[in-house]
Design a protein around this nucleic acid. Structure first.
Length: 966
RNA sequence: GGGCCGGUAGCUCAGUUGGUUAGAGCGCACCCCUGAUAAGGGUGAGGUCGCAAGUUCAAAUCUUGCUCGGCCCA
């Protein structure tokens, strides 16, 4: 009709997308409200109800340490866990998530002691019970803090009842696990050199030790006179040892040589000695050491760095030295020092440094201990827990005096004690045994990671779990190590390389040292018979202990209750109560027992389907859990093990506070929102080390906006959409194709979920939105959506497919953008009924199965790209402005079968498409005019601004409706 | 120092058993649209596949060495 009115504004007659869903997210402001609502409606519990009776999927949470704020590693780890749980739940499984915390242990204990020190209070003046109560409060405080932070991250779990290793039920159960080892003969008390911190007065786990580079360590060369040897010429010569720990000389018990090393005796030349008074003692004396190391030794004693300073004599191989005996430089003191020191063959002796002869003290080195033990030499326990020698030790080094002249002995690790002027060196010098002493050696040395103080190896009685004993109590199981190895083979590792890593660690590990001389932890609740030294193994006693601890926490393990535990038949005076506590790795290694198997969390079961932690846990939780479970149950506590790498800064460097390159997830949430962190975590290849930084987060933000706007478009385009097509309606081929693409996406996403491959998952999702929807489907159907009659079958079909897409995509997206997906869902379904209360209650969509000739469409899309490329030059030269102004001629043989010219014009968003000869696409400006409403250029439009046939009809109907309404 | 792992466009990632000119998305540049508008569309530029040798007709892919980074251990 109004062909004469080409100035009319047709905008009101166009059906534009309409939605209140904002383009700008404002996540930091919006997310907490969404979180609050989840809590209000009890989302986690609702989900449990909805999935009750379904196949279970158990992700068992590895307990983070309850100390300090959430950091980026926690954030990544928990996002991954949450995504696993959510995707499994989406698949319809019952996937409960019970988070947990590791609460015992040295770091918390240390914090409390630090507070004491500030208040000038001494830990030893505080009753242990009180001290533990403070540790408990401290741990609880951080559990609460981290819980809130993890909730804020959008982690869905049983926050009202997490598991804590310090819950009395857990403490009782951990003791019960320990008793299982005791009752099956896998536990023993041994003496072994362990890393020991004289400052904290405790043995340290490997993880509690850090290495620092020193440049001022002492190094001394000490001579041991050879008194017996199968090689006669050696008798009377002095074997030279080199050590960086002078304080171990008073505890020396043997020397070690390398069986494959070449040794020789030599004499320092007279003219060298003439101008070096400190060598006077060695005039005419024979020294003995590895031939190769003589030059570096000469340098240490001030001679030339070559062999011109010495006269060589006997040369022999280490393998000839068996039976050689030396005496201690302090042999004149008698007693311990008068005993002969044998020279023993040690494979560990190298010629990298030193003299090729190593002084052995079984108390203070692992190699030393093993070699001496093999030769019947026992440790002597001369160094006490505080690092001082025993008062009754025969040689303490000269008395150490304070400035006021008061005598006192200090810890053997203190610097003056080991210095060239210190008591040890002075006495050795006086005894004529010191060849060199300086304090300039550079090496890396272990320190306590808490106190930063030097640590030593020290032999102490410790409790161990035997790794290579037969497991009699488990059918068909060989040793614990062998069973663990078998279970590693039976486990699925993602990525696969994790298997290797765990395997090599279990393969090479020593017995499990489980004792700690501390206060904050689960006691090694055992009795040892005072006379026989035997471990009391009585299930009834053990049961009483377990019950008491479950009722009264670890405080129950108290001397005052010994009689109660031992029962009427035994005299408490006959038994020693072990006062050590358990390695915290035993606590966490037992979580499968007291979390998965207990009826406190009936929703859980064992073994878990998945353990998911950082790759550092190969040494830690993956291993401790495996050993604990294999030793007590004969099987691994998990079916799958997934490991992630570490988060580096934007340059791939490790984050550290001192470098100032840390990224705080709490700040990122404040600035960008939790959904952005989540999308980041799921966009990177988390199986390797990966990066985070401003540029990366900006990119994640772009990706986020693409997803958000896709949903915004869907919401707008689906405004007012209620039903779907009638039965007889024909779905256009484009829609069928998109549905088949959706089905393909669906298939790939399911695979990605099975593989825990979330990086692929999010990429597939984003690429689909970008390529298949935004740049293709939505763009092509823009005209249809805006301009076709509202009831036009094509438009209805389009919107029907949009609805299907919406329901599929919102479900795919829900595990990733947990907040935004909820916001989208609520924008479409604001009603608060059961089904629509939360997007997170929904299940994986079922995609209509349609038949589409995908290959044909792939060819079509390739042709489409060629057409776009061909149009571009005309746009460059401003012949045309958009593809709608282009008449396109495509090579006839390049057009896939079944498409009409009109189809092609629509799909290519061109004015017209016709077929021609040749290989090239030809483009010219159309001579048609532009419809005033739909802006298409069509032959039927006689003048710019007039309406095309379709639009004329729609406008007529629109006007009629308006009139009727008015 | 030892064991294990990794290094592909500015960013995040693909790259099958060695086989055409190494791909994608984003970002960037330029352009269009102004009826998804702090949105949407198009085109384009970007890579000595960490470096160096070697094997091969052919190497991002296999071997060795080096280098940078990471985890674990000492």
């Amino acid at each position: 009709m109004p062909n004469d009115d080409n100035s009319r504004d047709y905008r009101p007659t166009v059906f534009l997308p309409k939605t209140a869903f904002p383009m700008k997210a404002g996540l930091p402001q919006k997310e907490p409200g969404i979180q609050a609502r989840w809590e209000e409606i009890g989302l986690y519990e609702k989900l449990r109800e909805a999935r009750a009776g379904r196949e279970k999927f158990i992700l068992h949470d590895g307990p983070p340490y309850a100390n300090g704020d959430m950091h980026i590693g926690h954030a990544l780890n928990h996002v991954l866990k949450d995504t696993v749980v959510r995707t499994q739940s989406l698949l319809g499984k019952d996937a409960p998530y019970v988070p947990g915390w590791d609460c015992h242990g040295l770091p918390i204990e240390w914090k409390i002691e630090e507070l004491y020190r500030k208040k000038k209070k001494n830990k030893n003046d505080v009753p242990p019970k009180e001290f533990r109560a403070e540790c408990r409060d401290y741990a609880q405080k951080w559990v609460d803090v981290q819980r809130d932070q993890l909730k804020r991250l959008g982690i869905n779990g049983r926050w009202d009842k997490p598991y804590l290793t310090m819950r009395p039920e857990a403490e009782g159960a951990i003791v019960a696990e320990l008793h299982k080892f005791a009752e099956t003969g896998q536990l023993y008390r041994g003496a072994k050199p362990v890393m020991w911190s004289p400052v904290e007065e405790t043995a340290l786990a490997d993880a509690e030790v850090e290495y620092a580079d020193l440049t001022d360590s002492p190094q001394i060369d000490v001579a041991f006179e050879i008194v017996e040897s199968p090689i006669e010429e050696l008798v009377g010569a002095h074997a030279v040892i080199w050590t960086t720990t002078p304080w171990t000389i008073p505890v020396n018990q043997a020397l070690a040589y390398g069986p494959d090393v070449e040794y020789s005796t030599f004499e320092i030349k007279t003219d060298e000695i003439d101008d070096k008074p400190h060598l006077e003692k060695w005039r005419g004396k024979l020294l003995f050491m590895a031939d190769k190391l003589i030059p570096s030794f000469l340098l240490r004693i001030g001679c030339e760095y070559d062999n011109s300073s010495v006269k060589h004599y006997t040369v022999c191989g280490g393998d000839q030295l068996a039976g050689t005996i030396v005496r201690h430089p302090m042999h004149h003191l008698g007693g311990f020092y008068a005993k002969p020191r044998p020279m023993l063959a040690g494979d560990f002796v190298t010629t990298d440094s030193g003299t090729g002869i190593v002084h052995m003290s079984p108390d203070h080195g692992e190699d030393d201990f093993d070699l001496c033990k093999a030769n019947g030499i026992d440790p002597v326990f001369a160094v006490m827990g505080d690092g001082r020698y025993r008062d009754d030790w025969l040689w303490l080094g000269a008395d150490d005096k304070d400035a006021d002249g008061k005598e006192r002995r200090r810890s053997v690790i203190n610097k003056p004690f080991n210095s060239p002027e210190g008591p040890i060196c002075s006495d050795l010098r006086e005894a004529g045994a010191l060849l060199s002493a300086s304090a300039d050696y550079a090496h890396s040395y272990p320190h306590s990671w808490r106190s930063k103080a030097k640590v030593v190896y020290r032999c102490t009685p410790q409790w161990f779990i035997a790794i290579d004993e037969r497991l009699e109590h488990i059918d068909g199981a060989p040793t614990l190590r062998a069973r663990a190895m078998e279970e590693i083979e039976a486990t699925r590792f993602i990525p696969e390389k994790g298997r290797n890593r765990l395997r090599s660690m279990v393969e090479g590990r020593p017995d499990w040292l489980i004792s700690r001389q501390r206060a904050w932890g689960v006691p090694i609740a055992l009795f040892v018979h005072r006379e026989s030294g035997e471990l009391l193994v009585d299930p009834e006693v053990n049961a009483r202990i377990q019950a008491a601890i479950t009722a009264d926490t670890v405080d129950a393990w108290d001397k005052s209750r010994a009689a109660e535990f031992l029962g009427a038949d035994r005299n408490p005076d006959d038994y020693e109560m072990v006062s050590d506590i358990l390695d915290v790795w035993f606590d966490s290694g037992s979580t499968h027992a007291f979390v998965l198997e207990t009826d406190e969390w009936p929703e859980l079961q064992s073994p878990a389907d998945l353990y998911l932690e950082g790759s550092d846990q190969h040494r830690g939780w993956f291993q401790s859990s495996l050993l604990e479970s294999c030793g007590t149950r004969g099987r691994a506590p998990y079916k799958d093990v997934l490991t992630h790498g570490f988060t580096m800064d934007s340059k791939g460097m490790k984050m550290s506070k001192s470098l100032g390159n840390t990224v705080n997830p709490l700040k990122v949430m404040e600035q960008y929102g939790a959904d952005i962190i989540r999308l980041w975590a799921l966009s990177v290849d988390f199986t390797e080390d990966h990066r985070i930084g401003d540029e990366i987060l900006k990119g994640v933000g772009d990706t986020y906006r693409k997803l958000r706007n896709t949903f915004r478009y869907l919401l707008g385009a689906l405004d007012g959409f209620v039903g779907d097509l009638g039965d007889d309606a024909e779905i256009p081929e484009l829609e069928v194709y998109i549905l088949s693409e959706l089905a393909e996406l669906d298939r790939k996403l399911r695979q990605a979920v099975d593989d825990y491959d979330f990086n692929t998952y999010t990429r597939l999702l984003v690429d689909f939105c970008n390529e298949d929807l935004s740049a293709f489907f939505f763009d092509i159907r823009k005209d249809c959506l805006y301009c076709d009659d509202e009831n036009d079958p094509k438009r209805r079909a389009y919107r029907t497919v949009l609805d299907i897409l919406f329901h599929a995509l919102i479900r795919y997206t829900a595990p990733v953008l947990v907040y935004t997906s909820e916001e989208v869902w609520r924008a479409r379904y604001p009603e608060d009924n059961e089904q629509q209360g939360s997007v997170h209650l929904l299940e994986w969509p079922s995609i209509p199965q349609v038949g589409s000739d995908t290959a044909r469409w792939t060819a079509l899309r390739e042709l489409r790209e060629t057409v776009m490329e061909a149009i571009e030059p005309l746009r460059r030269e401003k012949t045309i402005r958009s593809g709608l102004e282009a008449d396109v001629i495509v090579p006839a043989d390049k057009v896939p079968a079944g498409f009409t010219d009109a189809d092609l014009a629509e799909l290519f968003i061109a004015a017209s498409v016709t077929r021609g000869q040749g290989d090239d696409v030809k483009v010219t400006r159309t001579s048609d005019h532009k419809c005033g409403r739909c802006w298409r250029l069509l032959p039927e439009v006689t003048a710019d601004g007039d309406l095309c046939g379709r639009c004329a009809e729609v406008v007529t109907a629109y006007d009629a409706a308006e009139e009727a309404a008015a």
